Simulated scan of single mutants.
Amino acid sequence: MSLPYAEVIGDPVDHSKSPLIHGFWLEALGLAGRYGRTAVSADDLPAFFAARRRDPDWRGCNVTVPHKERVIARLDRLDPLAARIGAVNTVVREADGALVGHNSDAPGFLRPLAPLLARPHLFRMARVLGTGGAARAIVAALADQGFTLVVAGRDPGKARALLDELAPGEGHHAITLAQFAEPTDFPFDDRAGCLDLVVNATSLGMAGQPPLPFDISHAPPGSLVYDIVYAPLETPLLAAARARGLPVIDGLEMLVGQAAIAFGRFFGQAPPPGGDRALRERLLA
């Protein structure tokens, strides 16, 4: 018996935790379906999508590096958020057969912040470290939530261009990442009523990557520190934040958040509520 299925594609893709996440939810809900992983090179993308268009059981795919921009040429249309960000991490086949590109990174990033964002604040500021694909989704998401943004990258010109494109308006700043590398004794003003975020949107600090050049003294008092890296789960940035008594969000939160949105689009049902702890245990096993 054939089953509806979805998958994650990338090059490489063996490291992806998406099959474990989606498989956990399919099992918990008792849904007939499956989720796999398929290594697809850039040269093979046209043939891959041509074959999947002919497969009536295929519901779509998640897209990981390096294809989040390359897949756009293979799709019939983009949803407005994906078009704005310029990257796709979820492809869904609609009832009419059209392949539609979505970006669930932005709402997935916001998912663990929902309780905080539901509260009023006098001011919201986020320091976003990075200018790559993940940073684009995060900047777009935070701009829509009324944040004043400081984007730091190796190339401040690229950071400025990112802000001008995704967060037009006054008040945002683009700086070099090196500006955060050394300790500071900057006298932060009264942060009462403010929501401050520090977000690592790079792969720096990931196992096998160079360290992130950010000294925790640059985080305002009471900041929430959010690192999208999940290998290791406790990055040096998060360890430094905890040592200062700052609240933190680790990379599994965004990973699960974006997957939850994709799952609903693939299988027509939201993940079961209240299962995040059990899922985290399985991901860390």
Rank of each mutant, 00 (worst) to 15 (best):
Ala243Tyr: 05
Thr202Asp: 00
Val256Asn: 09
Leu197Glu: 05
Asp196Met: 13
Gly193Asn: 03
Phe186Ser: 13
Ala181Phe: 12
His173Tyr: 12
Ile228Phe: 08
Tyr230Phe: 08
Ala219Ile: 03
Ala240Thr: 06
Gly153Thr: 02
Asp196Asn: 15
Pro220Ile: 09
Asp164Ser: 12
Ala178Cys: 09
Val225Trp: 00
Pro211Val: 10
Ala152Cys: 05
Gly193Ala: 05
Gly193Gln: 02
Ser203Gln: 08
Phe180Cys: 11
Ala178Phe: 11
Arg244Gln: 13
Thr176Gln: 13
Gly208Lys: 09
Ile175Tyr: 12
Gly171Cys: 05
Met254Ala: 10
Phe147Gln: 06
Pro236Arg: 07
Cys194Trp: 15
Asp189Thr: 14
Ser223Phe: 11
Pro232Asn: 10
Pro187Ile: 10
Ile216Glu: 02
Pro187Asn: 11
Pro236Met: 03
Leu237Trp: 03
Tyr226Thr: 11
Ala241Ile: 05
Gly222Gln: 12
Ser217Arg: 10
Pro168Gln: 02
Pro210Val: 02
Ile249Gln: 11
Tyr226Cys: 08
Gly208Asn: 09
Pro221His: 10
Ile216Phe: 01
Pro211Ile: 09
Leu237Ser: 06
Ala181Ile: 09
Val150Met: 04
Pro187His: 12
Tyr230Asp: 10
Asp215Lys: 08
Glu234Gly: 11
Pro168Ile: 07
Gly205Leu: 01
Leu212Phe: 04
Ala152Leu: 00
Ala207Cys: 07
Met254Cys: 11
Tyr230Pro: 08
Leu149Gln: 02
Leu204Ala: 04
Pro247Thr: 12
Gln258Asp: 14
Met254Trp: 07
Lys158Cys: 01
Phe186Gly: 07
Pro247Glu: 14
Pro221Arg: 10
Ala231Thr: 15
Pro210Ile: 03
Gln209Thr: 09
Pro211Lys: 09
Pro236Trp: 00
Gly257Trp: 08
Ala181Met: 12
Ser203Met: 01
Cys194His: 15
Leu255Trp: 04
Gly193Thr: 07
Thr202Tyr: 06
Asp250Gln: 13
Thr235Val: 07
Asp227Pro: 06
Asn200Pro: 04
Lys158Pro: 00
Arg191Leu: 12
Ala207Val: 14
Val229Ser: 02
Thr148Phe: 12
Asp164Gly: 08
Phe188Ile: 06
Ala243Arg: 08
Ala161Ile: 00
Ala241Leu: 01
Thr148Ser: 11
Asn200Asp: 04
Pro211Glu: 14
Val150Lys: 00
Arg191Trp: 09
Ala152His: 00
Leu197Arg: 02
His172Arg: 07
Ala241Met: 03
Ala259Met: 08
Pro232Thr: 11
Glu234Ile: 12
Ala192Pro: 03
Pro213Phe: 08
Glu170Trp: 09
Ala243Leu: 03
Arg244Pro: 07
Gly245Asp: 03
Ala219Lys: 05
Val150Phe: 05
Ala239Phe: 02
Gly208Glu: 03
Ala201Tyr: 00
Val151Cys: 02
Tyr226Met: 04
Leu212Tyr: 07
Glu234Gln: 15
Leu255Ser: 08
Asp190Asn: 15
Asp185Phe: 03
Tyr230Arg: 08
Val151Met: 02
Asp215His: 15
Pro236Thr: 01
Ala181Thr: 10
Leu252Asn: 11
Thr148Gln: 13
Cys194Ala: 15
Lys158His: 10
Pro232Ala: 10
Glu253Asn: 13
Gly153Ser: 02
Phe188Leu: 10
Gly157Thr: 01
Ala181Gln: 14
Pro183Ala: 14
